[in-house]
Simulated scan of single mutants.
Amino acid sequence: MTSVWTTVAPVVAPAAEAAGFDGGAFGRTLLLTALAVVVVLAVTFAVALRVGKQAVIDVTWGLGFVAIALTAFVTSGGHGDGLRRWLALVLTALWGLRLAGHIFSRSRGKGEDPRYEAMLERADGNPNAYAVLHIYLPQGLIMWFVSLPVQIAMFVEGGIGWVLWLGVVVWAVGFFFESVGDLQLTRFRNDPANKGTVLDTGLWRYTRHPNYFGDASVWTGLFLVAASAWPGVLTILSPAVMVWNLYGGTGKKLLEKDIGDRRPDYADYVRRTSGFFPWPPKPADPSVERD
């Protein structure tokens, strides 16, 4: 992790220092946030062993970002702009705590997630060691890398203008789509009458993944908050990784394959509903039989 900053620092240091950015203090924060990730995942792994399922890491996903933001906020004292620092902390905490609470509520009382079961079945040797290398390590690295805009937002100075407020608006849109989309899906699943059917009302009428679109928007908004002052714009790859993961990685693509195999009428829903960005739906196919 330190190699990332070691590579970038010589390039950005002169301009950053001119803008009042303390590269040395930021580098120390990078190390401490990496340590925070290790601690959070170590506790998560211990809990996973105790309860007998690795799916607890899904709850930790949101909490890990909160731990990073809080660590960066504390270690950046005396640097950056107060407004931006508080925005980065509060917006990250609201997103992470809501997501953790939602996943905890959804998974409480259930067994291991089928995704992790399938992964652990491929383990050669100790399944716990396999989980550390193939579940915890990748998620920890992604968590730390995606959070770079939040970390650097604690140190950058100036630029309290329209880009920062645009970031807050984009974050708010994302938070709305993610939280409302999750709430609508929970209510739909809790109604026995909907068993075997596809949710195509509310936000799910305009996008097949309002929660994933919301997640992508949240991190794009946080990037804009950081990018409103130099050198925050250099963290552009962080939201790009998050958006790619949600759209083409383990998010949308993997989920739709699983649903499509189980629900024949999902194909028509795919045909008439935007895959990611909200958009008015196409007319339903009258030839498709529905329950």
Results as ranks from 00 to 15, higher is better:
residue 154 M to Y: 09
residue 201 T to N: 12
residue 100 A to C: 04
residue 80 G to K: 04
residue 198 V to I: 13
residue 99 L to N: 01
residue 138 P to W: 10
residue 202 G to P: 00
residue 163 V to Y: 03
residue 126 N to S: 14
residue 207 T to R: 09
residue 188 F to W: 13
residue 104 F to P: 00
residue 126 N to V: 04
residue 200 D to S: 15
residue 191 D to C: 00
residue 187 R to L: 14
residue 150 V to M: 10
residue 105 S to H: 15
residue 216 A to N: 05
residue 127 P to V: 10
residue 194 N to V: 03
residue 216 A to T: 03
residue 93 A to C: 14
residue 201 T to L: 07
residue 130 Y to G: 06
residue 132 V to H: 07
residue 190 N to L: 03
residue 113 D to A: 02
residue 115 R to M: 04
residue 87 L to M: 14
residue 196 G to T: 06
residue 89 L to A: 05
residue 189 R to N: 15
residue 83 L to V: 12
residue 220 T to W: 10
residue 216 A to S: 14
residue 190 N to Y: 09
residue 200 D to V: 13
residue 127 P to Q: 01
residue 206 Y to N: 12
residue 152 I to M: 13
residue 116 Y to L: 06
residue 102 H to E: 10
residue 174 G to E: 07
residue 120 L to V: 07
residue 220 T to A: 14
residue 94 L to I: 11
residue 139 Q to W: 10
residue 97 L to H: 10
residue 203 L to H: 11
residue 158 G to Q: 08
residue 117 E to I: 14
residue 199 L to V: 03
residue 151 Q to I: 11
residue 131 A to V: 10
residue 164 L to Y: 00
residue 181 G to V: 02
residue 220 T to D: 07
residue 192 P to E: 07
residue 162 W to E: 05
residue 204 W to M: 04
residue 100 A to E: 07
residue 194 N to C: 06
residue 82 G to H: 13
